[in-house]
């Protein structure tokens, strides 16, 4: 029940004075309370838990995380071949966040 699922806001409205949004979860759409993210815009991705958007997903930091991981592999190869890299040398600068 702790599961919180990312989805895309496709419409924004209001019910009983509460901001609500329609959120698309890969084809399944649900009404979601937006009271905790009042300035959400259509098109944004949010994390939804038991009918409430609790946080926005930041695409920029998602990309940065993926880029760091991708770079990590390359650096490891450069510094002596991936899996065979010696632990004692520590991590190259820039890998460690």
């Amino acid at each position: 029940m702790c599961l919180a699922v990312p989805g895309q806001v496709v419409a924004i409205g209001e019910r009983n004075g509460t901001p609500m949004g329609e959120v698309d979860f890969g084809g399944v759409r649900k009404d979601v309370c937006l009271q905790y993210l009042p300035d959400t815009a259509v098109g944004e991705y949010v994390i939804v838990h038991v009918g409430f958007a609790i946080q926005r997903l930041d695409e920029q930091s998602a990309r940065e995380t993926l880029a760091t991981i991708a770079r990590m592999g390359l650096l490891a190869e450069e510094f002596g071949g991936g899996p065979a890299m010696q632990p004692a040398t520590g991590e190259p600068e820039g890998v460690n966040r």
Partner: peptide
């Protein structure tokens, strides 16, 4: 929602695993 799926990319997972193995001494 492409970049979300990338977080289960097996190739990148392999790189992370390599890295974990590389830094682990104990």
């Amino acid at each position: 929602m492409k970049y979300l799926e990338e977080f289960s990319d097996p190739e990148l997972a392999g790189r992370l695993l390599d890295q974990i193995h590389a830094v682990t001494t104990r």
